[in-house]
Design a protein around this nucleic acid. Sequence first.
DNA 1: CGCAGTCATGACAGCGCAGTCATGCATCGG
DNA 2: CCGATGCATGACTGCGCTGTCATGACTGCG
Lengths: 346, 346
Amino acid sequence: MAPGAGRGAGAAPRSVDVARLAGVSQKTVSRVMNDEPYVSEDVRRRVLAAADELGYRSNNAARALASGRTRSIGVVTLGTALYGPASLLMGVERAVRDTGYALRVVNTMEGETAGIAGAVGSLLDQGVDGIVISEPIDEPGGAVLSARLDVPILVLGAPPPFAAPHVVTAGIVSDQMARAATEHLLELGHTTVHHLAGPQRWYSARDRLEGWRAALAAHDRAEPPVVQGDWSAASGYAAGRELAADPGVTAVFAANDDMAIGLMRALAEAGRRVPEDVSVVGFDDTPVAAYVTPPLTTVRQPFDAMAQDGLKLLVHAIESPQADPLPMTDPPVELVVRASSAPPLR
Amino acid sequence: MAPGAGRGAGAAPRSVDVARLAGVSQKTVSRVMNDEPYVSEDVRRRVLAAADELGYRSNNAARALASGRTRSIGVVTLGTALYGPASLLMGVERAVRDTGYALRVVNTMEGETAGIAGAVGSLLDQGVDGIVISEPIDEPGGAVLSARLDVPILVLGAPPPFAAPHVVTAGIVSDQMARAATEHLLELGHTTVHHLAGPQRWYSARDRLEGWRAALAAHDRAEPPVVQGDWSAASGYAAGRELAADPGVTAVFAANDDMAIGLMRALAEAGRRVPEDVSVVGFDDTPVAAYVTPPLTTVRQPFDAMAQDGLKLLVHAIESPQADPLPMTDPPVELVVRASSAPPLR
DNA sequence: CGCAGTCATGACAGCGCAGTCATGCATCGG
DNA sequence: CCGATGCATGACTGCGCTGTCATGACTGCG
């Protein structure tokens, strides 16, 4: 920084420049900018006018340094365009913006070395007041968080994959939804329901598996072997070729819509009609679910509500560190029945 | 800030703490942390060991304040989970991370008052070294950027919707791809090709329209009326009911896969077979495109490559403000031919 | 009328880092 | 053998803001 450089015309205006123009002290400008009390209306107006004239924007770095708070929240997501995670991320962005915080994003990829803990670390390096971990997955070696974790963490869609203080969780409703989906098929008259599961490293996949299992148990049904997929339509297709060969399969609950779509294609190719021969239920209600052949019965998740509820908790934890955590409300779930599920032919 | 509070055990360590432990000056710690030259190997090791022992992380706000750079890049996206924009956002995240910058995200929603200019403003408030605008749309009143825009901007997937200095653009290849898709249908022997367009506020929608138009013109074909959709499968379905009623329609190029899927469903319901009666080509190659009925011929966009190329330009503009802009390389495009397109029956 | 209380404002310091410059020590060439 | 050069390091300062405290003006009340 050249000491005698003066401040060229290009330099961004600072609060003292505004202060000078408004004829007040720099501190008063700060008061106005932060909506602090004890500023007369007259002064407030003058300061705002001066700020506007100069095109003043307060310097965030300086504010963060002086106040010790960055007013930003970091999000860790899995770097995938899958409908569920992507929708949840959009919901989080909206919810964060509503709270007045800024958003920083770090993705992790499956199989990446640093993983979730690395992503959290990079957010802490950047300086955030809180962290959201969206749909975490299990990682090899387990996620070990920095011991000096001093910001609250919200884990969305799963119980935290690690032990840490200040952790709140929201939006664990998959199992109830999965159970509802399975029971829908049982109530249609199917003897049992097969499950096309997501990758078991994902909590949401395990959760849906549990919901399916609970529904079968509640109705005293035998539990057929689980078929594994990886969320992709391709894996659903592969699973479908297997299931199509088994005439005992009359109903399948897939852990997401993409797999359900791949599954239906394999069934069609094998000459098994949906829903006459096999009923299929998906999960997510992706935008195309209603328009594939046949239209897919599926479960709609309230991503926005989950994100909003969760962020309320997080912001509460940030701004009232001492207070008790807020109670969770379960967001509304919806089973959308379409043509892919029907009573079995007899 | 309590003056006499001392620094409790809970306080985050600062560079002077590291310096004290390593027996060097605070400035030397700064040198080591920033990989500056003129530090002996011995000292470097001692400092790193001390930092590790204390769990030191440099304070980003202080660094930004002292250096005048935040080392972060802001992204403005449309807040949608649509496959295309979401994939591009993921690509941008990865590319930003590769450059060593942090990422801040602000969404805009269609119809939101603040719009793109507001999102850019909020990023400038936060302090970013560069801005990426991903798939901008036209806004009512036009986007007027702050006159005091002093950071470079990268517009991804469109020419900038506003005039501003320091703007670079990348990834405008939709029209070529759309043209290729249309020509694929013409070469199969179709007399003409109908177009199911995206919302015309989106540049990418207009671009695909232009490509389609160019292909028809190059082959001296009449240009049938354009059908309007909004990217959704529902709008594709609505358009499909219209098109199905017209026996002259034998080939349709849809501006994205979701609309193509809705379209195919409407055709099926109307008793028009795909591809025997009507060929359909989509755009995006969403994960389910290969598994719908029939599997969809579509165009695959190189989102990651677009993001990486674009960010290379942006970082160059950030770090070498004087230098000429880097040349653009066109990323690879791919037409994926599947069963939804075939020669017309005669 | 005098004192306490409230409101409105300013002076000052310090947040934790990087930039600038000074300094001390080793190395080299003539 | 001595000045010129290069390397390694430290002292000091300031980035632009917020927190704390001091100060003065104004209000109400006994």
